[in-house]
């Protein structure tokens, strides 16, 4: 039982990272019906920017970083990546808004490869390591289950960010505008909504959340390289589909479910079966519920 609970804790940590990244895929898909393949790279860039900020500020070399310093790292990384998100949308997607659906996907892949290689050239091909003492080494033991501070931080920060996003989308006027754009661009425009601004907004929120996930992954695992965007991106994308792509609570649920399931699979069957199990599940759910767990059947647009 103790082992099982530990595995669930392990899974929730990974899962909440997937959720945060999945939100970026799902929001863009909701608004533009575009799979933003460059989104995984936002996560990766966020991680690298955090590393740079940490080393510029000289944090973690002798003592743990202060809370203010850590918040600053999050803030800088999230802001910069949000800017990058808007830039990518401007350069790679907006000119293709009226093109066939294939063109923006190819463009997204291009943006992804570009960002990956840019980071590789700037930071080099070797993996980079966060300073050891950045986060205080605190852990608790609850009923034989070891929980480190960073696991709690990842879970809490993810849930808070997701709750904030959910409130924004469901309870505010801005959220109503986002939802309107997701339903129909032209009608939304007739209602006086500036669709381009809403799209930009989505490309601020998604990458910022991705960056936050990237920062936490860097601080948790210490070690980052320029391909983590792909490994986490593909899982997060799966999570988004699992929960119902285009659906915000779906992405959160999908991420957590995927994280826990693959952890249990890796722990009880074999790590080699980890991906097989999660993708088998994905296929199964798509057969039973093609719209994903929480996806609703949307009337065909004419």
């Amino acid at each position: 039982m103790q082992e099982f609970l530990q595995q669930v804790v392990n899974g929730l940590t990974v899962g909440s990272v997937y959720s945060l990244v999945a939100l970026g895929y799902t929001m863009v898909y909701g608004i533009l019906r575009l799979i933003n393949f460059a989104h995984g790279e936002m996560f990766m860039v966020g991680s690298y920017l955090a590393l740079s900020t940490v080393s510029v500020l000289g944090m973690g070399q002798v003592a743990s970083g202060s809370l203010g310093g850590i918040l600053l790292v999050f803030l800088i990384s999230m802001t910069a990546v949000a800017g990058l998100g808007v830039l990518v949308e401007r350069v790679a997607y907006r000119p293709l808004r009226r093109a066939s659906r294939l063109a923006p996907i190819v463009s997204a892949l291009g943006a992804s490869i570009f960002l990956q290689n840019a980071i590789m050239l700037i930071y080099g091909t070797r993996f980079k390591v966060f300073p050891e003492k950045l986060i205080p080494q605190i852990s608790w033991e609850v009923g034989g289950v070891k929980i480190t501070l960073m696991r709690v931080v990842i879970l809490v920060v993810s849930l808070l960010l997701m709750a904030a996003l959910y409130t924004l989308v469901q309870k505010t006027q801005l959220g109503a505008a986002i939802r309107a754009c997701a339903l129909d661009h032209d009608t939304a425009r007739l209602m006086g909504i500036d669709v381009d601004r809403i799209v930009s907004l989505v490309f601020i929120i998604g990458p910022a959340l991705g960056a936050a996930a990237g920062v936490m992954v860097g601080m948790f695992y210490y070690q980052i390289n320029f391909v983590i965007g792909w490994t986490y991106g593909i899982r997060a994308f799966t999570a988004a589909i699992l929960g119902g792509i285009g659906n915000i609570p779906g992405a959160m649920l999908g991420g957590l479910i995927l994280g826990v399931l693959e952890t249990l699979g890796a722990g009880y069957i074999s790590p080699g079966w980890k991906d097989a199990i999660s993708f088998f599940l994905l296929i199964l759910i798509l057969i039973v519920r093609p719209t994903g767990i929480l996806g609703e059947r949307v009337a065909e647009k004419v």
């Binding site: 082992e3 392990n10 990974v14 992954v217 695992y221 490994t231 890796a266 980890k274």
Partner: peptide
Amino acid sequence: AITPGEKDYSPTLTR
């Protein structure tokens, strides 16, 4: 075996 290139090996280690 673990899968190299992954970041999270805690499932195996918990086992």
